[in-house]
Nucleic acid binder design. Sequence first.
DNA 1: TTCAATGTTTAGAC
DNA 2: GGTCTAAACATTGA
Length: 288
Amino acid sequence: MPELPEVETIKRGLKKAIVGKKIADFDSDWHKAINKPLRQYQRILMGTKILNVDRRAKMLVLTLLNDWRILVHLKMTGQLVFRDKKKCLIGGHSIETNCENLPNKFTHAIFTFADDSHLYFNDVRKFGWVRLYSANELAKVFEKMQLGPEPLTSEFTSGCLTEIMRQRPKARVKQFIMDPKNLVGVGNIYSDEVCFFARVRPDRRVGTLKDKEIKLIHKGIIKILKAAIMAQGTTFSNYVNTDGEAGAFTKQLKVYQRHGKKCYSCKGRIIKMKIGGRTSSFCPKCQK
DNA sequence: TTCAATGTTTAGAC
DNA sequence: GGTCTAAACATTGA
């Protein structure tokens, strides 16, 4: 389930695994997963090296020696798997939790490195993509996305959040924090958790929030994202020739997908509600 | 058979 | 322009 903590976890794992590696081949079986003809991908990628792996919002950015950039978005059901002779790293959606059968029918892009290790991009629903851009193109692409601040940087202060909130007073809290134009990285899981942390109903209008509540939302976003990164996300598994281990944050979820169950805090029932087309779970007693 | 699922964009209505 | 909803992408699984 790639939200910011999952993508950050993948970034860290991948950084150790592929930086410095030389690309020997690239393949894709789904034209919509890539943004240029396959031949062009191969021409540009073959022989170059991975210089760095970064994250922007929920995207991964691979910087290449020849100054091209690869942008990867896993969307809802994407997964990245790195495999060499000794180890296997899986990040993102839990499609495959073992590395035996790769590529599989969900594999839509494959990077082959010169040492014969591989990076597989798998996606059940085919919403995700792997794009290739020059440094200039990438800058323009980012500009067009109009992304809000990264919540885990010093730029994201509670004053900064208050400022952005002022521009959308009618928006509902959950939708507001999930919109990447306001701030990036928070999706359906963590937005429910942040609302619970701040004791605010997800359908509250941003304009009705008190200063105290805004501060709690700000604190909650940072605290929950950090905790989820510590736990390696909600579905990450990372293992070396042994059993896979699910992302540990699942155990810390307070409300997400817990509708019908008892609130850990007041023992009342968690209810659910559709907000902006997405299911939101919250405790009507604890959250006002 | 129907519904919901981790993300994001876009079209149309008011 | 703001804000709402539904739909689009494509597939699985309950």
